Simulated assay, not measured.
Amino acid sequence: MDKLYLIDTNVLLESPEVIKEYNVVISGLVLRELEKHKLSYNKELAFNARIATRFINENVDNLIFDLKDYQVTFDESLDKDYTDNKILQSCLDNSYSLITNDLLLKLKAKGLNIEVISPKDNDDLDYKGYKFVDLSDSEIAYFYEHINENIYNLYINQYLIIRDLTKNTIDKYRWNGKEHIKLKIPPKKFIRPENDLQECALDLLNDTSIPIKIIAGNFGSGKTFLAVKMAIYHINEKGNYAKLMVVRNPIGTGESIGWLKGTKEDKTDDFFVPVIQNLDGGEFEADKMIQSGKLLKNIPFFMKGITVDDSFMLVDEAEDLDVKLIKTIGTRLGKNACVAFSGDYQQSEDKFIYNNGLVTAIDKLKGNPLVGIIVLDRDVRSEASKVFADL
């Protein structure tokens, strides 16, 4: 029997012609989503849904329709009513392969050994926390005349980077749900952004009204550096928080060196080196901050039941956290506290590919007024480090 491919809604919306290239199965879940999108207030989405429906009708004789309502049984911890989970269950029950452009669904499918095809052929998130717009002089003028209107359909706390038609940056704003506001970052004598996205990240890390911050992106893009520097700025320069709590899950890439003797600190100290090296005084500064109570180190295993008050909590290498661990850490936040998750979802260890808490958090929390997200995309570490990014 020829291999069957269950197609996701996002592919039909973006590339409906794909149904001519494979033995495609269309589920009742997807049909219901298309019907809903046809009535969307988003004109582009509604138009694409109508085009997809037309493609289906024109090729109906070559398609297979699976209208079963699947019960999610492959993982008891997951939401049984979530469409993506039902799609995965249908693939497992019928040995379907999957066609999707959704990174989160793609990661879950790979973790379940489901073959995945992505027409867009990328490993990137649809939502990155910002939008570039290249505008003519008249369009720029129109924007400034309508500064309080959400012209470009931004999520709350999404950044807008305005460029001219030669792609030179003109201005940067963040949409707060009511108006576009200018970015506010520390003085350049304290920290200087390398590019537009780093400036957006600094604005997010600087804003105490947004207690949940996600700084994602590839290695070398400055995630940990920016977060550490801003934590120190809040603590030592502004007095906004009393201490920095650094959280890392002690998961490593490479071969294990076996069981380590000693205390919790002895066994986990090396995992905090990437954070400590971003302090101006390195280990000396870290020791001084620990002695004064300004720096705490923790791992998720020991955090259940505690409350974190008056703190800037930095969760580094957050790609190695599942949804349960993200919840465990996030629910520790107490009074006058914030949390910054920093990580590269493309470097997740194997056990977190299927259930990646960082990607899930970005997907589920975007647009929440208490949450800000920036996905950095440029390696600023060195020219040599960029060479290895493509291996």
Rank of each mutant, 00 (worst) to 15 (best):
F271D: 00
P274R: 01
S311I: 09
I276K: 05
Q291C: 03
M245S: 07
G281A: 08
G305I: 02
G330N: 11
S292T: 12
M313P: 05
G305Q: 03
K267S: 05
L244M: 15
K327D: 13
E265Y: 03
V339F: 05
K351G: 02
N336A: 13
K294T: 05
G343Y: 02
L244H: 13
K267P: 05
P274G: 03
A286H: 07
Q277G: 02
I306G: 05
P274M: 02
M245D: 07
S342I: 11
S292K: 12
I235K: 13
E237V: 15
K335V: 14
Q347N: 11
V246R: 01
Q277D: 12
V323N: 07
N240Y: 15
K351W: 06
T328M: 13
P250W: 07
K327A: 12
D269K: 09
G252T: 13
L296M: 08
N298C: 06
G282D: 12
S311M: 09
G330E: 10
N249V: 06
V273R: 09
G334I: 10
F272A: 02
W259G: 01
G281S: 08
F284Y: 10
F302E: 09
M245P: 08
L296T: 09
V323I: 12
D287F: 06
F271G: 06
A286W: 08
R248L: 12
D270Y: 12
D350K: 09
A337C: 10
V308F: 09
F271K: 00
F284K: 11
L321V: 04
G334F: 11
T328F: 03
I257C: 04
D320Y: 00
D350I: 08
K324Y: 14
Q346K: 15
A337H: 06
A286I: 08
T263M: 05
I306Q: 11
N298H: 08
K288P: 00
R248Q: 10
E285C: 10
G254N: 08
T268K: 00
P274Q: 02
L314N: 03
V308T: 13
K324A: 15
V275A: 11
M303E: 01
G254L: 01
G305L: 01
V308D: 08
N249S: 12
F302P: 01
N240H: 15
F301K: 13
N240R: 15
Q346L: 14
G239I: 15
F341W: 05
G281L: 07
